[in-house]
Design a protein around this nucleic acid. Structure first.
Lengths: 192, 192
DNA sequence: CTCGGTTGTCTAGCGGTGCTAGACTCCAAT
DNA sequence: ATTGGAGTCTAGCACCGCTAGACAACCGAG
């Protein structure tokens, strides 16, 4: 049995290598550069090996997205856990979110811009995605205001953050005043 | 001279045909289906003709985006011009924006999601794009609140609308409660 | 220790993409 | 009527995601 276990372990290692390499490649040269040929070359296997792990390129993107969602959730919790006061906590959350999107553009794209074959807002949404939303909800639910559904409020706040993140990164919004926009967002949307 | 004028006119007509066909094709079957081969077939010319009008596919997307921006600006002005009262006007604006994105997903993608080679937030931003932002500013500037820069406020409100539009259409947000989210957005962000 | 069979990997190639070089046609001006 | 240039087309390049089928490597049975 030990032989099979070793093979399974090696296989799992290789799968992680594929995802990590795809992510690295995407962050360095953009998702367009992540071709199955180049990816295969980087992991030092031939193309068909990729298809023995994933159904296709979209599933590889999906795997990167899930990894990113877990990181985002952890990042948000880390940024808010040590901060006292609702206002400061929400501000820290917003900054952490926008910062994550700016520092990991390819991962952010995999999660929200590209088609990774993932299902959202649904009972069979993958756990990391639900958890990332939960991380938002933890800080935002308490500032939703009276009579406002915390989930609905979180959705709105999230959408605003997402809009800021994508439009800024696509150079549709001037990046110099990001901080002012963030302040305004927190001031207006949150009930403190 | 009349011959050259006729040729120029025919050329301009054909260019409009290309853009209109690309848009129609994208709305019907998605941008993935807009291949240069299929597009050429639809306009009943060969592929190279496309490249005598545009540098490449991205420029065709850009042309659709500009057309869409002009329409969006007109739509927003039409939706707000007849409405009395700041609150009602801003609500009408938000609904019109989200409605436009939902009814013209391919055009919306061309403007904000895909790479159409366009420049934003810049002095040499194409006129229709600046005008679309101006249309937002006209209704939103008056509800920015004291001491808040109208342009900055409009950017934030726009980002929130954009986030709602994209996340809803990508099925990242449940569509049933769009109206509630819109109401909450207007209530919180606008100073009435 | 040999041998069959399974499991894993590779080479080669299919049908598609955006884009373009070079041949050709057709027509306006001489 | 001739000719030069504008306009269009055919054919093909290099690349894409993906896969069939050949081949090698290894495990377990005799």
């Amino acid at each position: 049995m030990s032989v099979q276990e070793r093979k399974q372990r090696e296989r799992a290692d290789r799968e992680r290598l594929i995802v990590a390499t795809a992510r690295q490649l995407a962050e360095q040269q953009g998702w367009d550069a992540v071709t199955t040929r180049l990816l295969a070359e980087r992991i030092e296997y031939s193309q068909p090996v990729l298809y023995s792990h994933f159904r296709g390129k979209r599933e590889i993107i999906g795997a990167v997205a899930l990894e990113g969602a877990a990181e985002l959730a952890a990042t948000l919790r880390a940024a808010t856990s040590t901060v006292a006061g609702q206002r400061a906590r929400v501000t820290a959350l917003a900054r952490a979110y926008l910062d994550f999107a700016e520092r990991n553009p390819a991962v952010y794209d995999a999660m929200f811009q590209l088609d990774g074959g993932l299902v959202f807002a649904n009972e069979d949404t993958p756990e990391p995605l639900k958890d990332a939303f939960a991380a938002l909800l933890e800080s935002l639910g308490e500032v939703a205001g009276d009579g406002v559904h915390p989930g609905l409020f979180t959705e709105l706040f999230w959408a605003a953050l997402h809009g800021l993140a994508t439009l800024t990164r696509a150079r549709r919004l001037p990046p110099e005043v990001t901080e002012q926009r963030t302040q305004l967002l927190v001031d207006r949307l949150a009930v403190l």
